[in-house]
């Protein structure tokens, strides 16, 4: 299991590096798909089957496709021609190493770091539990409904920004 995790982690990190370093924007989007699929594998390794498939459905099936659409629709030249680094690159390198070191230090001093996760009881259905939690008034019913309102807000906002109402005038 640890070996699988390490392989997946290496694949995710390598894909992530390729996303930022690849010159071709569609290649970058495809490397992003690879990284997102790796995250889905991580969810599956954690026994979170629902999260794993949702990761593929939403992130690969919708968001990555939307990225590719956006790249193809906005740019004439699908290549990044400018320099990849500027002269302050070493500052960001130091900052990232410091952040990584700080996070690693904090996590290693946390007591839960070395514990393995508890076993899931036999017959426990995570999806049903999630559904009940989403509906029940003493759990997440308000966030559930607010999520719907937020999705509508996103829908209206996206259409307002992206849509050019040319045909509105010709309508009788």
């Amino acid at each position: 299991m640890t070996i699988l995790f390490l392989i997946t982690a290496v694949v995710i990190l390598a894909s992530a590096v390729m996303v930022v370093s690849s010159r071709n924007l569609v290649h970058a989007a495809l490397w992003l798909v690879s990284a997102l699929f790796g995250v889905a594998v991580l969810y599956a390794l954690l026994d979170a089957g629902f999260m794993a498939v949702v990761q593929v459905v939403i992130y690969i099936g919708a968001i990555a496709i939307l990225f590719i659409f956006a790249v193809m629709l906005t740019r004439r030249e699908m290549r990044d021609t400018g320099p990849g680094l500027n002269k302050n690159w070493w500052v960001s390198a130091v900052m990232s190493i410091l952040t990584f070191g700080g996070l690693a230090y904090l996590l290693s001093s946390w007591s839960g770091f070395s514990q393995t996760s508890a076993d899931i009881p036999v017959g426990f259905d995570a999806v049903t539990a999630l559904g009940e939690a989403l509906i029940s008034p003493d759990a997440f019913v308000l966030p559930f409904e607010v999520a719907s309102v937020m999705l509508v807000a996103a829908l209206v906002g996206a259409v307002y920004i992206a849509f050019n109402p040319r045909i509105g005038d010709t309508r009788k």
Binding site: I58, L66, L134, S148, A158
Partner: peptide
Amino acid sequence: YYIFGLVFLIFDVEMVFLFPWAVA
């Protein structure tokens, strides 16, 4: 094409919310 992609994304997220509801 992009508009339909956006509308699809919103509805896809909604459907994913509905699956646990339907199971429970």
